[in-house]
Amino acid sequence: MAEQKKQPSVDAAPDIREKLLQSALRLFTQKGYASTTVREIVAETGVSKPVLYYYFENKEGIYRELMQRFLTSMDSIFDNAPAADKPIREQLFQLAEKMFVIAVQNRDALRLLHAIYYGPPQGAPVFDFDAHYLHSFEHVRKIVRKGIRSGELAPGREEDIAWLLMAAAQIAIEEQICDRPPLIDRHQLKRILEVLFRGIGRKYEKKKR
C-alpha cells in the first residue's frame, strides 16, 4: 500500500499556500520562470521544501495554479456577462471595464503571462492561453452579432468588429503592466470605445465639377 503524503506542520500559518503563490509570482515576474528555483520560493516564503511539495508538488504546480487562477477570473467575466436586456453598448462597456479591473488587480500575473506567451521559451508547462482568449472573443462576437441584428450597431462583419473592440481593450490592459505610469485608464478606455461606436470616418458629399 502506497504511503500517504504527510501534511507539514503549518497550523500556525493557515494562509501558507497563498504566501507560496505570491512569493512564486514575485520571483517569476522579477527573475523569469526558468531562473526561479524551489529553494528561492521557499526562502522567500519562510518555509521548507516539503511544505511547497505538499501543496503544489513542484514549481510547475505553482505556475499552473497562478495562471489558472488569473484566467479563470477573466473567464468568469464572460460567463457572468451583463444582462442581455441592457443596450449593446452598455454590455460591451461593462465587459471591457471588468477586464480592465481584473488586469489592474493582477498586474504581476498578467506580466508573467505576457512573458511566457510573447517571450522566449522558459521551460514553463504548456498552457492553452489561446483557448481562454478565444473564449472571450466568442462572447464579444455574440454580443456584436446581436447588436447588428437589432440595429444598435452598424452592419458589418461581426468578427472584424469584435476584434476591433477586443484590440482596444487589450491595448488599455497592456498599458497597466508597463514599467512607467500607464497612459490609459478605465475612463479613457470608455472614451476610446465611444469613438469606435461613433466611427472615425467623416461623411462627405462628392463635389460636383
Rank of each mutant, 00 (worst) to 15 (best):
I77C: 04
D128M: 03
L27F: 04
N80I: 04
G61K: 07
A13D: 13
P82L: 04
L27R: 01
Q105N: 14
F93R: 07
L110S: 12
L66Q: 02
K203M: 15
K86A: 14
L112Y: 09
L27G: 06
R64S: 04
K190G: 04
V10P: 04
H139F: 08
I62C: 06
L164F: 09
I88K: 01
K49Q: 15
D185L: 05
A84H: 03
P50C: 06
P50I: 07
R191S: 12
V140F: 00
G201Q: 14
R209C: 14
L110P: 09
E152M: 06
E90A: 12
R111I: 07
K146D: 14
L196F: 05
I143R: 01
K6T: 06
M67C: 14
P120L: 10
Q30A: 15
A162K: 01
Q122M: 05
I177Y: 05
F56A: 08
Y117M: 14
D15L: 03
D79F: 06
I143G: 13
G119I: 11
G61N: 02
Q94I: 13
I173C: 14
M67S: 12
L92K: 02
K203A: 09
V51M: 00
H135T: 07
M74Y: 01
I77R: 01
A34H: 04
T29C: 12
H139P: 07
D128I: 06
E205V: 13
L21Q: 14
L21I: 05
R202P: 07
L92V: 02
Y133D: 12
D160E: 15
A83D: 15
R157V: 13
D11K: 12
A124V: 07
Y204D: 14
E138I: 02
A24S: 07
I192M: 09
